[in-house]
């Protein structure tokens, strides 16, 4: 799914990365636990989270995550946005909650990552 489509279906605002909206993501992972993101997220994942500190960007950087969507209308401070820019990570914010955001994206065909075989 293109990041541009994600922006559109969630009425999201792009905080950084307007030029990278045609990049594709293949999975979404919703979590406020960064160690779980590091353990389970794959390359080509968009991270959905309510955390807005710099560690979220660092986590994405290390795990090769190229897009982060902040939920519940959260907006990180300038320093965090600058860090995302430095690592070429697209960041967006939506007013939807984490659950609703995940549901909307799932409905549009974006699948999650299974942590364990079920």
């Amino acid at each position: 799914m293109k990041i541009r489509e994600i922006r559109d279906v969630l009425n999201a605002e792009v905080l950084w990365g307007e030029d990278l909206l045609d990049n594709e993501v293949h999975y979404a992972f919703s979590s406020d636990l960064m160690s779980d993101v590091l353990a389970f997220a794959k390359r080509g994942t968009i991270l959905l989270t309510g955390l807005i500190n710099s560690q979220v960007i660092r986590t994405a950087e290390m795990a090769d995550i190229n897009a982060i969507l902040f939920v519940r209308g959260k907006v990180p401070d300038k320093e965090v946005i600058r860090l995302a820019q430095e690592s070429s990570i697209v960041i967006l914010t939506t007013k939807y909650t984490l659950y609703t955001t995940s549901g909307i994206l799932y409905n549009h065909g974006l699948r999650g990552i299974e942590a364990y075989n079920t």
Binding site: L33, M34, S35, D36, A39, L51, Q55, V56, T59
Partner: peptide, 15 residues
């Protein structure tokens, strides 16, 4: 609250 302390750090490093 910062998103760490889930008890996954050392297991992640091993992995």
């Amino acid at each position: 609250e910062m998103g760490f302390g889930a008890g996954m750090g050392l297991p992640n490093m091993k992995k």
